[in-house]
């Protein structure tokens, strides 16, 4: 059990390093996909909120440490993302094909919008009067960010579903609660 948790912890550290040292060189600053957040959202969709939320807090803590943010900023961003995802998870997996896809798209859109708003607010020190100055930058990038996040979400969901099916072929998928 401890071994499994240690592995997850290492994966979180690696994922955060990947997010901070790899992605920024491939995307312009406003388009960088939310790798950590989308990964957690995918995990919530497959395994459910109750199995993922603690890892969300840990991932947020690691992100705050690496990104020089005040501790708590990313924790809030990730835990809220997990919570939002838990509402959509059943529909993403159980809905009809088109319904499931549309719900997935809506989920990624909401997550992208929330993360962008929250992190920009944190970046300007919650100085709400300044938000209008960032608006141009904010809306310029959000469309591409959403598209990249959506692609990432679909890839991760596909991989996680396959992995989970392989592991529990006899059982049905656990649907997020």
């Amino acid at each position: 059990m401890i071994k499994k948790e240690a592995i997850i912890l290492i994966v979180i550290f690696l994922a955060v390093i990947f997010q901070m040292s790899f992605f920024p060189l491939f995307f312009s600053i406003e388009n960088i996909p939310d790798f950590i957040s989308i990964s957690l959202v995918s995990l919530v969709v497959i395994f459910g909120f109750q199995n993922v939320w603690v890892w969300g807090i840990i991932a947020g803590l690691v992100m705050d440490i690496f990104s020089f943010e005040k501790i708590g900023i990313s924790i809030i961003s990730l835990i809220v993302s997990c919570y939002i995802a838990s509402f959509f998870s059943r529909r993403v997996l159980l809905g009809e094909k088109l319904g499931g896809i549309l719900t997935g798209i809506l989920l990624v859109l909401v997550i992208t919008f929330f993360n962008n708003s929250w992190l920009i607010l944190a970046d300007i020190g919650f100085w709400f009067q300044e938000i209008w100055r960032v608006r141009i930058f904010f809306f310029d990038g959000i469309l591409w960010k959403f598209i990249f996040n959506l692609i990432l979400f679909l890839i991760l969901l596909l991989i996680l579903k396959k992995l989970y099916k392989k592991k529990s072929s006899a059982k049905n998928l656990i649907i997020g609660n």
């Binding site: 901070m20 992605f23 920024p24 600053i29 960088i32 020089f68 993360n115 930058f137």
Partner: peptide
């Protein structure tokens, strides 16, 4: 070794 990945890319 790493850079700002949200906000303005200012560090």
């Amino acid at each position: 070794i790493s850079r700002d990945f949200h906000g303005q890319g200012d560090w």
